[in-house]
Write a protein that binds this DNA or RNA. Structure first.
Lengths: 198, 198
DNA sequence: GGGGCGCTAGTCAAACATGAATAGTTAGTT
DNA sequence: AACTAACTATTCATGTTTGACTAGCGCCCC
């Protein structure tokens, strides 16, 4: 699942310096375990991988009592760059076969400016329109492939129908963003760090 | 990805006895490589696993010239049972976070009766309605969890919007199935085996 | 007749995901 | 004061996915 890296980078970025358990707990409160298949192992594995690749840096290991030691991480400059890259990819491009990518991207949209998010979403609407046209043409083209079974045409229609659902969510959100809802990078109430309960 | 087993079982079931390459080629013609992440390795691995678990049986190995040997498979009775189970699960239950499951299920819907498919789809519409209610309540409940970030409410709305898209596809299909479109188990033109090009 | 291209058929190491299990800690309850 | 339920913090064996790679065969074209 390609949304894992973005989710982990983004969650570390909010709370850094932070240890794995807190990252996981935050993502659980977003229900990312369901929509992004985020098991405990995935979180810790991603942390290790990202640290090995130089996107995260382990900044210490604390032990409280006789509990398991916990390693804390923060983003490296490369990690910050990668985060912004993945975030922009997630928001600007449709991913018709992986719903978790937009969910992950939207989770950190506030890290960009309101203008960029609106622009990205408008671009998304155009892509969805283009995709409708591509589907039509692909379905028409099936006539030239007589051995392709008829359910394939419905696959195209189903993918497009789901995208239309996504489009109505996007349109609703664009309107609300233009109305000033929520807070984004550079604005007074913009979140930059998460709010820790404890 | 849980749709892999269903796809492989179903594809073997169509062409049995059949070797891996033909299964893969057929699934590629459905573009399952894109919507179900079906790489060559996944196909062969699934075949091995299903054979190990007794759902498939390797019925021979032929060698033509000095080419790689090819193993042919067919479903065991357990494999047929598992196929029908996975197929019914895919069609009767919504899977809000994995779009490939319905795509895989629909690919083999013709293996059930027209009546059952219509009933399953009607049940699906009810589940989507119920899910709308659950989303509403979940969003309302967020007021009691002040530290949950605001994007979580949009996650619920996005999942629901995509399901509404799916619902419009399902409604369209129910109407066409009631009109007698396509052919299902027990009907004159029902597909039972695939049509091989060569 | 030989050179290149695309098809056939599958393998494999590395990467990634799964989720049960572990083992100590705290808070509440009878 | 003992019990237990839930939380903290992570590991690890197992399983699945990825996609580049191999290597022979057939066909077409010059």
């Amino acid at each position: 699942m390609s949304s894992t890296r973005l989710l982990i980078l983004g969650a570390v970025r909010i709370f850094q310096p932070v240890h794995g358990y807190l990252v996981r707990r935050e993502l659980l409160s977003w229900h990312a375990d369901r929509w992004a298949h985020l098991n405990p192992g995935s979180v810790y594995n991603a942390l290790h991988t990202l640290a090995r690749d130089g996107l995260l840096q382990a900044v210490g290991t604390e032990t409280a009592g006789r509990r398991p030691a916990r390693t804390t991480y923060r983003l490296t400059p490369d990690g910050e760059t990668e985060f912004r890259l993945l975030l922009r990819e997630a928001l600007w491009n449709i991913s018709p076969h992986d719903p978790s990518i937009l969910m992950a991207g939207w989770s950190f949209a506030w890290a960009l400016s309101r203008e960029e998010v609106i622009e990205a979403f408008e671009h998304r609407l155009e892509q969805i329109q283009a995709s409708a046209r591509v589907s039509e043409l692909a379905i028409a083209d099936l006539a030239n492939h007589p051995f392709t079974p008829p359910h394939v045409a419905e696959h195209w229609r189903l993918v497009q129908a789901r995208l239309e659902g996504e489009a109505s969510w996007v349109r609703n959100l664009i309107a609300r963003l233009q109305d000033g809802e929520l807070a984004f990078a550079g604005e007074p109430d913009a979140p930059s760090r998460g709010t820790l309960v404890d």
